[in-house]
């Protein structure tokens, strides 16, 4: 059998496609596992996302919320909340970050920065995020050390200027 791509078909589809994203596939653990060769730009985006996801997960557990309870109380989508915690490929919607900041009584601008949604670079938050990501595990119940790390970081994020 021959593959055929009628010219008019290609043109019609191209016009409808309109340049919007068409990517299909998963997070891709094969090509990125233990991979030290990721560029700085990609790593920056990654680190922020991972720190944000872990932070939300830990603060949720500390407050004793289930995913559903937090989603309900903060009026955010439970699937998006779970995705944020898993640091999956999605970036959170700014509204979700605002809602989460509100419910946890944090500075929304700082939380947006942690989520990678703002231009303003704050060294304190970035260093805090890196230390947090390096010292926290995402599973199991919180150890006293984790509680301490979390609280230090919450203090940085809660300080409204």
């Amino acid at each position: 059998m021959k593959f055929s791509f009628p010219r008019e078909w290609c043109i019609e589809m191209a016009r409808e496609e309109n340049g919007y994203p068409v990517s299909a596939g998963t997070l891709d653990s094969i090509s990125t596992k233990n991979d030290a060769s990721m560029s700085c730009a990609v790593e920056d985006v990654d680190n922020m996302r991972v720190a944000f996801g872990r932070f939300i997960q830990m603060i949720r557990r500390k407050r004793g919320y289930s995913h559903e309870q937090l989603a309900d109380n903060a009026d955010v989508d439970v699937v998006e909340l779970k995705n944020i915690e898993k640091s999956s490929s999605c970036f959170p919607a700014p509204r979700t970050v605002y809602q989460l900041a509100k419910i946890f009584n944090l500075d929304s601008k700082k939380l947006l920065q942690l989520a990678g949604l703002t231009k303003k670079r704050d060294v304190e938050i970035e260093n805090g995020a890196l230390a947090f990501a390096a010292n926290s595990e995402s599973i199991g119940s919180l150890t006293p050390e984790e509680v301490e790390i979390l609280e230090t970081f919450v203090a940085v994020l809660a300080e409204k200027r």
Binding site: D28, S31, D35, C90
Partner: peptide, 12 residues
């Protein structure tokens, strides 16, 4: 940023 931003085709 496209959500495929970390794909590595050479590895795949």
């Amino acid at each position: 940023i496209p959500q495929s931003y970390r794909w590595k085709w050479d590895k795949k």
